[in-house]
Design a protein around this nucleic acid. Structure first.
Lengths: 208, 208
DNA sequence: TAGATTGTTAATCGATTAACAATC
DNA sequence: TAGATTGTTAATCGATTAACAATC
């Protein structure tokens, strides 16, 4: 009922619920029960009801949840009613791909700048962004009040980049470098390392 | 001691330990204590010792763990002593980036084929791979005994691709499409959806 | 030996599940 | 009203942490 302190694990499931609701909404479905949503997502209906109940009473007994309304509520809870500006650091192969990936803009994240420290990269046009030198990073982040950054530099440079981003005011980092960043507790970090996910799965694959 | 049935959450941490050991190994460190590893990874030493103890007794009292030896043990446990062949389905922007990303090969995953069903794409050279038509998928997977696939097609096509992959004998899928795949219990799926991770973090960002 | 760190047990903590009264 | 599904409580389950004897 009150959201005085919701577990991070519950918060992490909300975007998943939202993604499912987006699809249902597009397909014109107007109501959904916790059972149906659970089947869709491969969880349990009890978990969905429990999770949602931490933030309010969004359902209707006997009917389920209004898809459009629940979607709006989740977007509000997750602060997704606004556009978020994001900077990308690293304009190599990975950084370029990340910066041009249309999936971010579709879900409310506008990539507004791309930084690199390599002279050959600076000034290049990637997608519709000109690569900027690292020396402009702090000023840019402050001037545009950017709160979110993605790191796509080699592991050896990632921590230093993270330090600079935090110093400049970034509060959330999506880290593509295969290394554990050290940041103050007020800054969130999420890691993307698909090779790690493959290595998790190979445990279950028998040797040929 | 016995690995009769280790929780998936523990298995998922092993690649993280391995990644840290790779770095330590390269920097020439020969022993590491659970405390040091925990500091490095931002976990607790008790958790590391508990996790590792599920698979054997790898440490030495008073000294810690031999970096090289523990690394070898983890690689063995995770079935990473061999190269794994991987196919990528989807040769769009995302699939191309994924197929050319050198991070997979570095960690033992060889991308050996790239498939797409779009006539314009088929035959194109991406990195050193020629894009193959979907019609060749099943034969290729069977002939080369491929067990791992990555899906990088639009959400609307992902489930059908997954069905074909499973049918052909794939046992582990890394899914880049923003949708929950339905597969038999013998097949593992891991999802990559960075936008979801951003949406998780925005919860903690105050409105401006 | 003295100091350090493991592997493991027991205690704690938190998350998931089951069940059901409330109610649309 | 009868049927369905919520929100919530209590019970279960599992994961993390603390502590320490064993031992290098």
């Amino acid at each position: 009922m009150a959201d005085q302190s919701v577990s991070d694990i519950v918060v992490g499931r909300l975007p998943l619920y939202l993604r499912a609701l987006d699809v249902m909404s597009k397909s014109g479905q107007s109501f959904v029960s916790s059972h149906e949503l659970a089947r869709w997502l491969g969880t349990s209906s009890a978990q969905i009801r429990k999770d949602l109940s931490q933030f309010g009473e969004f359902g209707v007994q006997g009917r389920g949840y209004d898809v459009h309304e629940l979607r709006a509520n989740l977007r509000h809870i997750l602060h997704l009613e606004r556009e978020w500006a994001v900077v990308v650091v690293g304009a190599g192969r990975l950084g370029s791909a990340v910066a041009s990936y249309p999936g971010f803009a579709q879900r409310g994240f506008t990539i507004c700048a791309l930084f690199d420290n390599h002279p050959d990269k600076i000034g290049q046009l990637i997608g519709n962004l000109r690569v900027r030198p690292m020396s402009e990073l702090a000023d840019f982040v402050q001037a545009h009040r950017v709160r979110i950054a993605m790191i796509a530099v080699p592991a050896s440079a990632a921590q230093e980049v993270a330090d600079q981003l935090v110093q400049a005011g970034v509060r959330a980092i999506l880290n593509y470098a295969p290394i554990d960043l050290v940041v103050p507790p007020s800054v969130r970090v999420e890691n993307v390392d698909p090779a790690l996910q493959l290595q998790h799965m190979t445990y279950y694959l028998s040797e040929e």
